[in-house]
Computed example of a mutant assay.
Amino acid sequence: MRSVLLLLCLMAFAFRPDKPAYRLYNAGLKSQSYTKLVREAADADVVLFGELHNNPICHWLELQLTKDLQSAKKGALVLGAEMFEADNQTALTDYVQGRTTDKELATQARLWQNFNTDYKPIATFAREQKIPFIATNVPRKYASLVARKGLAALDTLSAEAKSQMAPLPLTVDLNLPGYKAMLDMMADHGGGTQANPHTSKSGKPAESPAANFARAQAIKDATMAHFILQNLKSGQTFLHFNGDYHSKNFDGIVWYLRQQRPNLKIVTLSSVEVPDPDKPAVESPDLANFIIAIPSDMTKTY
């Protein structure tokens, strides 16, 4: 009898009662329900879903949240995504409104390599439900231009090109936590050209490859915020999908949204991969309104 009890105790320690694909927490790492997430998201003006681009749990939850918000908002839902660039808006709108086919969308828009597995289900649901879908990101060629030559290079663009990004001139605070962390990381790896990559001796932002790379991220953040606000009407919820970097720590897109609409009700989600979703550890105490803890050995979509 004693050996049986010992065996049962060992089994209890060796095997967990379930294998959760994710756990949901608030900023203080207190367990939250998906129902509460939907309720708070439905009451928000903007919901920023910070995803890990190759994580299937993120994409499945994005689809579920889209469906449940469409039901909760009774049609007052707008979608947007970093994965679609502003100059592809016509192609995306034509597809969502049923005027073009999957094959035509693939030829008319620059789709990410994981579109079919990860974003097409959301686009298909938007098409079925006639949900507006906004291409919020700056065309990548302009972000690349900033990374190579700095923000001043945007001044040479045509009026049409400038209409595909946040209004210029753009304010970039390289001391914001997200950009500062990027600069520090690049400096640690030899990517900076000055002792202080954040500011020059004159107190102005440093001119360096690392600083321009951070500004390239900022033009993306600012542009996504710009098109979110441009397409948000009173009473609607704008559900936006973006890489976690662009909205975690209430930075990036959030900062640019707050510059124009400080009273906007924003709900953020941050995705983290951890060894044990039941015992999450996060990099900062103020990561997001909701934290999605996903097993670090989760399979990847690419």
Rank of each mutant, 00 (worst) to 15 (best):
L69S: 02
N242K: 02
V46E: 07
H246M: 07
A135S: 10
N196M: 02
D244G: 11
R148Y: 09
Y142N: 09
R39K: 14
H189M: 12
Q108E: 12
A218V: 07
L287Y: 06
N54P: 05
E82R: 01
N26D: 08
L48G: 01
I253D: 00
Y256V: 06
F15H: 12
R99S: 14
T107L: 10
A293M: 06
G80V: 12
N116A: 15
A152F: 14
P275M: 03
H189F: 13
D278C: 02
T268V: 05
E207K: 15
D43A: 15
Q260A: 13
I134F: 07
D297M: 07
R127G: 11
D102V: 05
T193P: 10
I131L: 10
L24Y: 00
D18W: 07
D173G: 03
S163L: 13
R127H: 13
K248F: 14
L92C: 05
K103T: 12
E128H: 12
W112F: 08
S202A: 15
N212M: 14
H246G: 02
A91F: 07
L65T: 14
V282F: 05
P262N: 01
R148H: 14
Y302I: 09
N88Y: 03
Y256S: 07
K67G: 12
I253Q: 05
V96E: 04
Q217K: 03
P17F: 05
V272G: 09
D173E: 04
L37W: 01
